[in-house]
C-alpha cells in the first residue's frame, strides 16, 4: 500500500507521466459513457420499471406469497452454501499457501473451473449424476430422497458454481502475509488450532468476510445452474432469479422488475461492502 501512496504523489508531481489534458478528458468521458450505457442505464431501468405502476404494486409484487417462498428458498440455499464454502475456502487457501504437496497445481487449476464451465453444464452434471433416471438417483428415490427438481439439487448446483470464491479471495492475501507469523506461534508452543484461531484468522478476517459476501451474492443470484436442476415448481423450488424469469416470461414486467430490484439492492450492498473492506485493508 505504501507504493500506492508514492504513486499517487508521482502522478500529480510528475507532469511528464500524465497524458495530455485533452486525452484525459476524452478517456474520462468515454469511461462515463460506457458506464452510463452498461451500468447506470440498466440500474435505472430496474427501478423505473419496478415503480412504473406505483409503490403499491411494487409492494404487492414483493409481498406475493410465491415471491416470499422464493426468497426463503434462496436464503436457505445461501445459508447452507456460504458456510460450507467458507470452510472449504479457508482450508484450501491454508493448504495452498502454507504447505507444499502433490497435486497443488491441480487444486489451483480446479479453482478456475467454475469460471470456465457454463452454469448450464454445472446444472446438467448433477441431473446426470442424481436424476431419477440414473442408478444413484433411483436408489436415493427408493429411500425417499429427491435431489433433482428439489431443494438439495439447488444447493449442490449452487455449491459447484460458487465453491472457489472464498478461496480465491484468501489465497493472494495469505500469500502476501507469508508464514512467518504462524512459524513464530509454533515455536512459542501454540497448537495448530490455537495458531489458526489467534494468528491466522484475525489476519484474514476482512478477506474472508468479503469472500463470504461475494459468495452470498453469487449463490443468491445463480440462474443457469439452478434453472436446470430446479424443475421450476412454483412456490416449491423457485429461487428469486427463477421467479424473476417466470414473471418476465409471463409479461408481468412490473412484478418481475420489482423482485429484480431486491437482487439489485443485494448486488449494490455487496459492492459497497467490498469498497469498505478494501479501505480497511488499505489503511492497515
Amino acid at each position: 500500500m505504501q507504493t500506492n501512496h508514492t504513486q499517487e504523489a508521482l502522478i500529480i508531481t510528475n507532469p511528464n507521466r500524465n497524458d495530455h489534458p485533452a486525452v484525459q478528458l476524452i478517456l474520462i468521458l468515454l469511461t462515463f459513457l460506457f458506464f452510463a450505457g452498461f451500468i447506470f442505464l440498466p440500474l435505472g431501468l430496474v427501478f423505473a420499471q419496478a415503480f412504473q405502476k406505483g409503490t403499491a404494486l411494487y409492494l404487492e409484487a414483493i409481498r406475493d406469497p410465491i415471491a416470499i417462498s422464493a426468497v426463503k428458498l434462496t436464503l436457505l440455499t445461501a445459508a447452507i452454501v456460504v458456510p460450507l464454502n467458507a470452510v472449504f475456502g479457508v482450508t484450501a487457501a491454508w493448504a495452498i499457501t502454507k504447505f507444499s504437496f502433490r497435486g497443488k497445481t491441480l487444486l489451483i487449476s480446479l479453482l478456475d473451473l467454475p469460471f470456465a464451465v457454463s452454469p448450464v453444464i454445472a446444472g446438467l452434471i448433477f441431473v446426470l449424476l442424481a436424476g431419477s433416471r440414473t442408478s444413484l438417483g433411483s436408489w436415493l428415490g427408493d429411500h425417499g430422497i429427491k435431489i433433482i427438481f428439489s431443494t438439495p439439487g439447488i444447493v449442490i448446483a449452487t455449491l459447484f458454481v460458487t465453491f472457489p470464491f472464498i478461496a480465491r479471495e484468501l489465497i493472494p492475501l495469505m500469500e502476501s502475509q507469508g508464514r512467518e507469523e504462524e512459524e513464530a506461534a509454533i515455536t512459542l508452543g501454540a497448537k495448530g488450532w490455537q495458531t489458526f484461531r489467534i494468528i491466522t484468522l484475525p489476519n484474514i478476517r476482512w478477506g474472508l468476510m468479503y469472500g463470504m459476501i461475494l459468495c452470498t451474492a453469487r449463490s443468491i443470484g445463480e440462474f443457469g445452474a439452478v434453472s436446470v436442476v430446479s424443475g421450476h415448481i412454483r412456490g416449491m423450488t423457485n429461487t428469486i432469479p427463477l421467479h424473476v424469469e417466470i414473471l418476465y416470461s409471463e409479461y408481468n414486467y412490473t412484478a418481475s422488475f420489482a423482485v429484480a430490484s431486491i437482487l439489485v439492492f443485494l448486488a449494490l450492498a455487496t459492492i459497497a461492502v467490498k469498497a469498505l473492506v478494501e479501505k480497511r485493508v488499505h489503511n492497515q
Binding site: P42, V46, L214, G221, G224, P241, A267
Partner: peptide, 25 residues
Amino acid sequence: KVLDALVDLPFALPTAVAGICFATL
C-alpha cells in the same frame, strides 16, 4: 471511486436481472 466500485457490478448482479434489463432497454 464510485466508478471503480461499480466495475464489479456484473460480478455481483444476478445474470437473469442483467438479462431482463438489456432485453427491455
